[in-house]
């Protein structure tokens, strides 16, 4: 495998992008999970699909756009979708979750139309839906790196604010934090991560890389910082194991990555159960 990485550029791209995503997706995922926004990640990934399908269709029908990287329109759609979700959430104050099915189905709807309009898309489509080891280009890798820099800078600068805001929204506003702005930026950064992770994990499984490692970490951690570090660790283990097995077994990496993370979750749940029953045994 190591040799293969040195000799094939596509493998280098896939691994480098995978390692980066393994950090940023769970990092942002921790905030998404504790703020109960997990499903929003799902909605945004479907909007990204619409953007990518639209871009592929445009590149076929408009000659000057033939070389446009579909990720750009995917990112644009995702960011636009995140703003629409916020708009809908403030319109339906008491039914905030309504924004999710609306945006999610809009994403699939537009995606389906563009997919059927574009010709010969079906082979690429599989890669976009479930990820691909071979399709990550250098340009894709650079886009992922750009996204990662934005995410890391954002989280580094606003860590305390994001923490307080996620923990207790009212208290954060009473302390004078510009809660609206931070939330708005958070949504945009989330949209970026989703669009950036999509090449490796695939649209249908992006949100799981943001949530499953976090769900796993939360079972065993007490502190917020621990939760972040452990989530990233579980994320990386899933990405590396998933990519290696995808390469050797010729499977879609989205599938192998997510199945690995589910496996880790089950392991941790079992470990937790054993520890608890041992403690109970010790007391009795």
């Amino acid at each position: 495998m190591i040799e293969a990485i040195f000799s094939y550029e596509f493998l280098q791209n896939a691994f480098a992008a995978g390692l980066i995503i393994g950090v940023i997706a769970p990092l942002l995922g921790v905030f998404i999970v504790v703020r109960r926004l997990s499903l929003i990640a799902d909605a945004l990934s479907h909007v990204t699909l619409a953007g990518i399908a639209g871009s592929l269709y445009l590149s076929q029908s408009v000659a000057s756009l033939a070389l446009l990287n579909p990720l750009f329109l995917g990112i644009a759609a995702s960011v636009g979708g995140s703003m629409l979700i916020e708009r809908l959430r403030s319109l339906y104050k008491h039914y905030q979750e309504l924004a999710i099915p609306i945006i999610l189905s809009a994403g699939i709807g537009f995606g389906a139309i563009f997919i059927s309009l574009a010709e010969g898309f079906s082979s690429d489509l599989f890669g976009y839906l479930f990820g691909s080891v071979s399709a990550v280009s250098r340009e894709d890798l650079f886009i992922v790196m750009g996204v990662a820099i934005v995410v890391l800078v954002f989280v580094f600068i606003f860590f305390k604010e994001l923490f307080v805001l996620s923990f207790d929204d009212e208290y954060a506003r009473a302390s004078g934090l510009p809660a609206k702005w931070i939330h708005f930026m958070f949504m945009i950064v989330t949209a970026l991560v989703i669009a950036g992770s999509m090449r490796i994990v695939g649209i249908l499984l992006v949100s799981s890389l943001m949530t499953i490692p976090v769900a796993t970490a939360m079972r065993v951690t007490k502190s917020f910082k621990q939760t972040i570090f452990l989530s990233i660790a579980f994320g990386e283990i899933s990405v590396i194991t998933g990519l290696v097995s995808a390469f050797y077994l010729d499977l879609a990496p989205g599938g192998t990555i997510v199945v690995t993370s589910i496996f880790l979750l089950l392991l941790v749940l079992a470990y937790k159960k054993i520890m608890v029953s041992r403690k109970k045994g010790a007391i009795a």
Partner: peptide, 22 residues
Amino acid sequence: SNSFNSGFPATVKEVVAGGLVK
């Protein structure tokens, strides 16, 4: 404190230090 997010993975230390955010 009904606004606080129950089940949140944070220690008492982290929560109290959050009071210094501003």
